[in-house]
């Protein structure tokens, strides 16, 4: 199977989510080939899972103060601060039978591309259910990547974050926690349980370096596929701009729960 390989640089949250949806639609109608896309976020943004309550998860005033945007994803899962990271999205027609049908097994199969990409950088990661990639720091498992998947119109869309650097303090300054009294303890726990490529390797790994590695990783994980560099089509871009304006930049979507 031939994939398009798209890089769309650093974009605002609404546009990033809009492109994922526009590409999904184009892959579903076979207007575009299956697609692997790598991207970043500017300005920083929090995405929340489809089933989360925006106002319960995010401190909107704190976001406004720190110029952090927010967006609801089409995928379930938790709230994520997107800042120093590489994000991937992959769009695979279910009919291609490239990955198993089962949700968990398909997460595992697609995550192999990220795992092999991390290995290129010298990071040994593994998949742990339900949807995380972890590295071992001695005996302590630490999350380095989170992933989320949906299936629409016969297409599997999986997107995920690969942390280049992590700022737990900033994350917690923007997220609401169920019990303010426990916040300090939660920060300490999350700091132990989350890491990043740069922290793990003890050297700064930038966006471009990680991007090349993850592209290589997907090519290794799916040797029967090609990943040909391409540009997003003007039709997809038009559709994405419309979705960014009417859906992902709109309260009726972002605040629906």
């Amino acid at each position: 199977m031939n994939f398009r390989f798209l890089t769309t640089g650093h974009l605002p949250a609404r546009m990033n989510m809009a492109i994922d949806e526009a590409v999904l639609d184009a892959v579903a109608t076979k207007t575009s080939a299956p697609t692997l896309r790598l991207y970043g976020w500017k300005p920083a943004a929090i995405s929340i899972g489809y089933f989360q309550s925006l106002e319960e998860e995010i401190d909107l005033a704190a976001c406004a103060k720190s110029d952090t945007e927010f967006v609801r994803r089409v995928t379930g899962g938790g709230a994520v601060l997107h800042e120093h990271e590489l994000t991937y999205s992959i769009h695979i027609p279910e009919s291609a039978a490239l990955v198993p049908n089962g949700i968990l097994e398909s997460y595992r199969a697609i995550s192999e591309g990220v795992i092999k990409g991390l290995a290129v950088l010298g990071v040994t990661a593994k998949f742990v259910p339900l949807n995380d990639l972890i590295v071992m720091n001695g005996e302590m498992p630490q999350k380095i990547s989170g992933n989320a998947q949906t299936r629409k119109q016969g297409v599997i869309l999986q997107h995920g974050t690969i942390l280049l650097r992590v700022d737990v303090e900033k994350m917690f300054s923007l997220l609401k926690v169920p019990d303010e009294k426990l916040k300090g303890k939660m920060i300490a726990t999350i700091k132990e349980r989350v890491t990043s490529i740069s922290h793990f390797l003890g050297r700064e790994v930038g966006f471009e370096e990680a991007l090349d590695a993850v592209r290589t990783g997907f090519a290794q994980a799916f040797p029967q596929c090609t990943f040909e560099a391409a540009e997003i089509s003007s039709e997809e871009m038009r559709h994405a701009e419309q979705l960014a304006k009417e859906k992902y930049g709109n309260d009726s979507w972002n605040k629906q729960r």
Partner: peptide
Amino acid sequence: IQITGDFFIYPEENI
């Protein structure tokens, strides 16, 4: 009733 959280339900709109 409102059910929220970081879980996954397919198809999502069924919630």
